[in-house]
Design a protein around this nucleic acid. Structure first.
Lengths: 255, 255
DNA sequence: TGGCTTTTTTGACGAATCGTCATATTATTA
DNA sequence: TAATAATATGACGATTCGTCAAAAAAGCCA
């Protein structure tokens, strides 16, 4: 009896494992199609063909094409959360930790430009209109985690005096500042606007400079004028994002 | 003969006028459908029905649905250019003029949230992939105008000493800073993230605060600490954006 | 005015894709 | 092994896109 039950449960869990694995396979395939041939080439039929299942099976996993895209997006946000968590654990000053979030964000999107496109795609109305409230809530919850992580550092800065007490009411504003600046930069970067032709510096460079001035404006200690910002960038990124930097180097060498 | 020619030319120009008028009619109709029923309700067929022409005629004006959407977007950018031009003519300090651009941008998007969605929609890959290079170039040219207007103010600031000479090489970075911050804020604002539920202040308020700190960080004189930023906001917006403020008041009163 | 030419409009059509569902297949259980 | 449950399939209807041959309208000339 207990054996039978064991068999039952292990069998079930094997099934479940298979299903989960296939879910990842579908996501991977969709991502690959997206990367290689663009959004309009990605169809449910093609995903099905590629993994050698039928369309109906895909629909057993994802209720619509938009649902699939959104799930892809959630995976990206989860990756970002991991990066943010690393930044939060950095043992430097609060300002360094906050900066680390910005750096991690930039590096991630530099390393995975296609992920940024996913994120942007899901923000688009044509897609959002078709998402279920459940799926939207799932994504929102992930975004909330990111906000929480970011906010916690500003909180710490005020508690330890790196940020003046008078900015306590501006905590969410400061979070929003970093967020909007980076989010906007990322979207501009991957739009068709030829930033470098127009005389703009690399986005990562500009973001770092602007973030420093932004935080200087809030008098977040220690100010960027005290030490060399470029050195700080290298210090933080090599301490936290060794892997990302390596991969990034490989990418740029190859192209 | 000259009369005949006159008749001819006036006939031609009447035709041309009719065509242009219809083009606007199509755009207006598409915008209305978009506003009232969302992106997925907007179909070429429905636009045709609404203006009582056939689908083929719509396709005489716009080569695809994406082309139509992009044209809508170009109209929005043109509106923004007009706002930016107003800001550039403001007779205050360079910093006030630069701030005025940010204020105009915020107010415009607050007043026309649907326009922001158009802009975002066009940035989306699914749409962009289907646009002709000509159409993309048209939009890029408009965006370039906006960049130029913004950049000119930073240039002036350096020339007159409001910004230190050492920032000369950072002109485009400073432009990018304002731009990314506002662009990101606008997109976050109209995404599904419930900012106010999450404890964020109104986006216009946060943007104003963050822009000031950002410019303070660059030591752009006169610093926001010298005078009351709130008063400055009112001063600039009532001097330049009287109309927008009025309309905005009406909107908020109605809801 | 009447007839010829050019321009514009029309809507039926083929193609692509979505999402569904009755049926077929496979796995599980007794 | 046979009955039952779970899963996979792909044909199907629906929607929308964009095209194009034919129809209608406008322009032109004698």
């Amino acid at each position: 009896m207990s054996i039978a039950k064991d068999v039952l449960t292990t069998t079930l869990s094997r099934k479940q494992r298979e299903i989960r694995e296939r879910e990842q396979l579908i996501l991977d395939t969709a991502q690959a199609l997206l990367h290689q041939h663009g959004y309009n080439y990605l169809t449910m039929e093609r995903v099905a063909e590629t993994i050698e299942y039928s369309k109906g099976t895909i629909y057993n996993h994802f209720t619509s094409k938009e649902d699939l895209i959104c799930s892809l997006c959630c995976r990206c946000i989860s990756n970002l959360i991991e990066i943010f968590e690393r930044a939060c654990k950095y043992s430097g000053s609060t300002r360094e930790r906050y900066s680390a979030i910005g750096i991690g964000y930039s590096l991630y999107h530099q390393l995975h430009p296609m992920d940024s496109q996913n994120i942007q795609t899901v923000k688009n109305n044509a897609v959002r209109e078709k998402l279920s409230v459940e799926k939207l809530a799932e994504m929102e919850a992930l975004e909330f985690e990111i906000i929480q992580l970011t906010q916690s550092i500003v909180q710490q800065a005020i508690e330890c005096g790196d940020l003046e007490k008078k900015y306590e009411k501006d905590i969410s504003t400061i979070v929003f500042g970093l967020w909007s600046m980076h989010y906007g930069a990322l979207l501009l970067n991957q739009s068709d606007i030829p930033l470098n032709e127009l005389g703009f510096n690399p986005v990562v460079t500009m973001l770092w400079k602007n973030t420093n001035c932004f935080l200087d404006g809030y008098q977040w200690q220690p100010l960027s004028t005290v030490s060399d910002p470029n050195k700080l960038f290298d210090k933080i990124s090599s301490a936290l994002f060794q892997d990302e930097l390596k991969k990034l180097k490989k990418c740029t060498n190859n192209t």
